[in-house]
Write a protein that binds this DNA or RNA. Structure first.
Length: 367
DNA sequence: ATGAATGATTCCCC
DNA sequence: GGGGAATCATTCAT
């Protein structure tokens, strides 16, 4: 609301900007009047127009009315029309259609993709989920960060929309003011609808450049938020014990070839509630760290080998006892079973399958 | 506070 | 494109 006087004032400025030139033109004698007296008369009228802004509104209103009723008004108006026609021709040439701004389109696309603009809640969470997936973060323990992220994002979203609305309102208000003023002025000076349209276009362009700044800073805010919340390295969480165990079990039971296939990775991921890429990361890290220091992992290896063997034996004893030649007859001797299976597993790992990994690892360890 | 452990990323190679 | 190696950034245990 307190913008109004300022808007009105600046509009006056725009409105009167063209007059000195005209006044000069008229006083040069191109006005077409023949007598000295008439020239003086026109000069007076112009003077009155020029000083109209210095007067109070009521006074100006009265003056305007007086001017409108002046006997010279139609003649003067015609002259103005003529001059205007000539000027408008030159203005028209300078008028060009601007191409759709690539930068603005990029910003719009990003805001839409991030769920800042566009549909309400769905876009936001979808973008957050997509971002999380891209960062490789999965599983239930991330939900806290996600809700935090969503909260901040919706805060940004809200600010963005409020500001956008404010700009739009201001733009509309300003446009209305200018249009009213131009309409009002069109009674004393010739203004074509095209000119009004052009002026509206200029105003809209000005406001859209402000909007672009808003969009730019919103994009920046979103990027900062994303890097703060969704950079997986910053928000690393250790896998839970169960997941680590499942992964280790697989690793040590496939020690001769610890390279799970895509399907195996998917299965492991499902079992551990982590993504396939997290499984890949885990195996990548595990292989390299194991290889670097087999001695350190020996105990762990033995433990998981025993564990796997025990599980395998349990399955075979309860499932198909006849098919298991390694199963001892004495039931319930856990140590024996575990130990035997452990040896069997270790032997299997050493002897069978593509042994590139274990051979290389041992060689490296020995060297 | 500190060092080890660990999940993720990056660069390079095949 | 997948894996190895180095590295980063965080978490955990002391």
């Amino acid at each position: 609301m307190d913008d109004q006087p300022r808007l009105m004032h600046s509009t006056h400025g725009v409105g009167m900007a063209g007059h000195p030139g005209l006044a000069q033109h008229m006083q040069d004698g191109t006005g077409g009047a023949d007598g000295e007296g008439r020239k003086q008369d026109i000069g007076d009228i112009l003077q009155q127009i020029m000083t109209i802004t210095d007067q109070s509104l009521d006074e100006a209103q009265a003056r305007k009315h007086a001017l409108n009723c002046h006997r010279m008004k139609p003649a003067l108006f015609n002259v103005l029309c003529e001059i205007k026609e000539k000027t408008v021709l030159s203005i028209r040439g300078a008028q060009e259609e601007e191409p759709p701004d690539a930068q603005l389109m990029r910003l719009d696309n990003m805001l839409l993709a991030e769920g800042v603009s566009g549909p309400e809640k769905g876009g936001g969470s979808a973008a957050a989920a997509a971002a999380a997936a891209a960062a490789g973060g999965g599983g239930s323990d991330n939900s806290v960060e996600h809700s935090d992220y969503r909260a901040k994002l919706s805060q940004i979203r809200q600010i963005y929309h409020t500001e956008l609305e404010k700009y739009e309102q201001a733009c509309n208000e300003f446009t209305t003011h200018v249009m009213n003023l131009l309409r009002e002025q069109s009674r004393t000076r010739p203004i074509s609808p095209k000119e009004i349209e052009r002026m509206v276009g200029i105003i809209h362009r000005k406001f859209s450049s402000i909007q672009m700044q808003l969009k730019q800073s919103t994009c920046e805010a979103v990027m900062i938020l994303r890097s703060r919340f969704l950079d997986a390295r910053r928000k690393r969480r250790n896998f839970n014990k169960q997941a680590t165990e499942i992964l280790n079990e697989y690793f040590y039971s496939h020690l001769s070839n610890p390279y799970p296939s895509e399907e195996a990775k998917e299965e492991l991921g499902k079992k551990c509630s982590i993504t396939v890429s997290q499984v890949s990361n885990w195996f990548g890290n595990k292989r390299i760290r194991y290889k670097k220091n087999i001695g350190k992992f020996q105990e762990e290896a033995n433990m998981y080998a025993a564990k796997t063997a025990a599980t395998a034996t349990n399955v075979s004893t309860h499932g198909s006892q006849a098919n298991s030649p390694s199963t001892p007859n004495s039931a319930g001797d856990d140590f024996y079973v575990s130990y035997a299976s452990c040896i069997a597993t270790l032997l299997t790992n050493k002897v069978c399958g593509p042994n590139r990994f274990i051979v290389n690892s041992v060689a490296m360890y020995e060297a």
